[in-house]
Computed example of a mutant assay.
Amino acid sequence: MKHYNFDEVIERHGTNCIKFDQLKERFGSENLTPLWVADMDFRTPDFIVEAIKKRCEHEIFGYTYGSDAYYESIINWVHYKYNWKIQKEWISYIPGIVKGIAFSLQCFTQPGDKVIIQPPVYHPFRIVPESMKREVVYNPLKLTDGSYEMDFEHLESIIDNKCKLLILCNPHNPGGIVWKKETLIKLAEICAKHHILVISDEIHAEMAYPQYRHYPFASVSDTAASCSITFMAPSKTFNIAGIVTSYAIVPDKHIRKEFYSFLEAGEFGDGTIFAYEATTAAYTYGAEWLQQMRMYIMENVRFVDDFIKTNLPQIKVYMPQASFLVWLDCKDLKLSQEELVDLFTNKAGLALNDGSIFGPGGEGHMRLNIGCPRSVLVSALEALKKAINKK
């Protein structure tokens, strides 16, 4: 068994890397430790790199399509990871999940229609519909015993005949929640009753920690399968976001015909050579790498939680159940959001995501990306400790 080294610090400056090379543009300074945008600083696994190198040896990169091996790798992986049996015709490449959300809005809604989101949540869920002149309606998550839950009573109260679509984050970003099966079943019942299409963003699904089981939304019941589109990708898991490897799974034939006809009309479902190669390699050879990477991330979570409890008791860590993003409750610092961002950015020299961008409930929070070598986290948290002690 190969041992992968996640402690390696890799220089990413000068590679047109958003996370590092756009620090000055996004945060006003390039001299920050970047712990924000959701990609990891780990080397992309060797089996993916080798698959791309091998394809490059052919030296012709003409029009392409997904091979049988590509579809089989997705079908087998989804069955292996989630015990969900899907079929080839249910699957389509898409050029990114945010783009897939935009396509769904364009296909199934009209300007003025209402789109439901559950904040605090990944900010494109709000930005994309608003940019397309759809009305965004909030069904905020509620905090119960320090953890987020869906508020079904409130959801029922806000639904009217203009509500056409709900965007689900499963697992949840930034809260790190792996939704329980009964929660998803209940959500499906409500949405189906009101003829609301559920768009389930499951990009962090593969990174659910071993003690939690991820349920693809469409897999939890026939009702869920009949009212949903699922988006998945190996991009977060295997650190290949720049290759654009997303795909849609649509079990319902009526939704599938309408959505895939839309994709076909604009050739949006046509993937690239390297997307097909990378996905096939990730899902064929990636199980052991994923296991080792998740264990490293879980140790990073434990380190962050222990450090903050010991040294920064004014900050609370929401313990994630999936992914490499940690949601920090900083309200006990008694700072305005502007002061909080200034503390992290200008005083501690750290670039994190401002919690307020995630919508109602995000104020007083920051999102920390721990997909990096532990040495980076050590120095970052020491810098934060020093800045808070000076406050």
Rank of each mutant, 00 (worst) to 15 (best):
V128L: 03
L263A: 05
Y71E: 09
Y65T: 10
I177A: 10
P210W: 03
I315Q: 08
F358E: 11
I60Y: 09
A322H: 08
H79I: 01
L333A: 05
Q321W: 00
V220I: 09
P320E: 09
C227M: 02
C107W: 00
Q314C: 00
N353A: 11
T345Q: 13
M207G: 02
Q321A: 02
K19C: 10
D21V: 11
H154K: 15
E72R: 15
K88D: 09
M1R: 14
N389F: 08
L263S: 06
Q87A: 01
K391Y: 12
V121G: 10
L384C: 12
L325W: 11
A248H: 07
E8A: 04
R55S: 14
N170D: 14
N83G: 07
I127T: 10
K390C: 07
Q211C: 09
K390Q: 13
Q314I: 03
A248D: 08
I75N: 06
G361F: 03
I18C: 10
N16G: 12
S219H: 04
C191A: 14
P174F: 04
C191G: 13
E149T: 13
G361R: 03
L328T: 07
L141C: 09
N311R: 11
S147I: 12
A275H: 12
K334Y: 14
Y138E: 14
I357T: 09
E339T: 01
H3G: 00
